[in-house]
Design a protein around this nucleic acid. Structure first.
Lengths: 189, 189
DNA sequence: AATAGATTGCACAATGGTGTGCATTGCACA
DNA sequence: TGTGCAATGCACACCATTGTGCAATCTATT
C-alpha cells in the first residue's frame, strides 16, 4: 500500500532524526510494521535514505520556487524563504546528521541543485548591497543555510521562537543590519 | 607508553572527524598500532570518546580562561576567543558529529560548564549593548558557538578564510554591526 | 645481561545488524 | 466466493564489530 510506504518514510525521518544510527528494526517497529515489510518497500537501507533525501530536496525546492522572484529585495525573499522553509527544515533535521557517515556523498550530491539556487540568491543580495560582502556568496549561503538547519536541530526549536531565531540569525549572518533583520523577522511572526 | 596513548587520541580525533562510525580497527591501524593495543589504553569505545571529549573541554576551557576578562568589551573578548579557539575547534570538529548518537548525552554533560561561561559572556555583551537582544543569551551563545564548529567542519575551513569566516559570522549573529565585526575580525588576521 | 612494561598476534565468544526466502494470513475488490 | 496484493512471521546465512585471554616478542632502563 502506498500509505504504508509513506508512513514508513515519515516515521523513519523522525526516528533517524532522534538517533541517526537507528536500525531497520527500530524504524519498522516505530512505524507499527514488521521489519520484513520495510524491506518490501525499500530493498536496502541506502534506498530508504535516498528516498528520504529526494523527498526533502523536492520539498525544499518547492518552497524555494514559490518564494524566489528576482524583482523583490533579496533580504525579503530570504526572510520569506526561511519562514516557509522552517517546518520543512524542522522535519528534515535528520539529514543534518545523515549527511555524514556512509550516505554523505550521495546526500550532498542530491542537495547540489538547491545549493546553487541559494548561492545565486545571496549573490543577487550582495550585488544590490542588501547583504554584506564579508564572504563569497557560495560560502555565505551555505553558512546561513546550515545555521537554519542547526537551529531546527536545537531544543528550543519547536516554538515560534525557532522560526524567529532562524530568520533573524540567518539574516544577521548575511550582513543585514540588526534593525532591518528584526523588522523582516517580526513581519513574519 | 604515554606517547602511544596520545597518538591514538590524536588519530582517533582525526579519523572520527572524517567518519564518525569508524571502528576501533580503523582507528588502530590509522594510528599504526594493533587493535589490541588500543583496548590496552581504552577498555571501551566509550572510554576513548570520553577521553577525547575531556581533552576537548580542557583545551576549550583553557582558551576561554586565557581570553575572558570582565573589564574588556564583550565583542572584543568574543573575537579573541574565536580566533584562539579556531585551531582547537578545527581539531575537535569530530565532536560535532559524535554529539549525536550513543554518546551524545555524556558529551553534552561534559560540555555543560563551557556553555555556562559562554552564556555569561554573551549576557555581559547584551547588558553593555555590544550584542543584540533579539534572542536570549543562553540560546544566542549556543547558536554562535555552534556556528563556529559548523564552519570548522566545512571544506573551506583550512585556510585563513576559515578563522575570518568564523569570527565575523559569529559576531554578526551576536548582533554586532557589520563594520565593527569586520574590523574586529581584520585585527586578528 | 636481566627485568619490567608495552606491544603484538591470534583465537575466541558474543552481539547485533543486514538482506533474503517462503509459506501463511489478512483484506479489498470484483 | 474467488482473485490478487500487501503484510506477516519465521528461519536463515552472512558479516562487521566489540571486548577478552594469553603467550610471545620487543625495548628502554638499570
Amino acid at each position: 500500500m502506498r500509505a504504508t510506504r509513506d508512513r514508513i518514510l515519515d516515521v523513519a525521518l523522525e526516528v533517524l532524526g532522534r538517533s541517526p544510527d537507528a536500525s531497520m528494526a527500530d524504524i519498522a517497529s516505530a512505524a507499527g510494521v514488521v521489519r520484513r515489510t520495510v524491506y518490501g518497500h525499500f530493498p536496502t537501507r541506502a534506498d530508504l535514505v535516498r528516498s528520504l533525501t529526494r523527498r526533502a530536496v523536492a520539498e525544499i525546492s518547492a518552497v524555494l520556487a514559490e518564494v524566489d522572484s528576482s524583482d523583490r529585495a533579496a533580504d525579503a525573499v530570504w526572510a520569506d524563504f526561511i519562514a516557509r522553509l522552517w517546518p520543512v527544515a524542522h522535519r528534515y533535521q535528520a539529514l543534518l546528521a545523515l549527511r555524514r557517515g556512509e550516505y554523505g556523498d550521495e546526500i550532498h550530491a542530491l542537495l547540489g541543485p538547491v545549493d546553487l539556487v541559494l548561492a545565486d540568491l545571496v549573490q543577487r543580495g550582495q550585488d544590490s548591497r542588501a547583504f554584506g560582502q564579508h564572504l563569497p556568496a557560495g560560502i555565505l549561503s551555505q553558512l546561513a543555510y546550515a545555521a537554519v538547519f542547526s537551529i531546527a536541530d536545537s531544543d528550543f526549536a519547536t516554538d515560534a521562537l525557532g522560526v524567529r531565531a532562524a530568520t533573524v540569525t540567518s539574516l544577521l549572518m548575511l550582513g543585514v543590519p540588526r534593525s532591518r533583520a528584526k523588522k523582516l523577522a517580526d513581519d513574519r511572526s
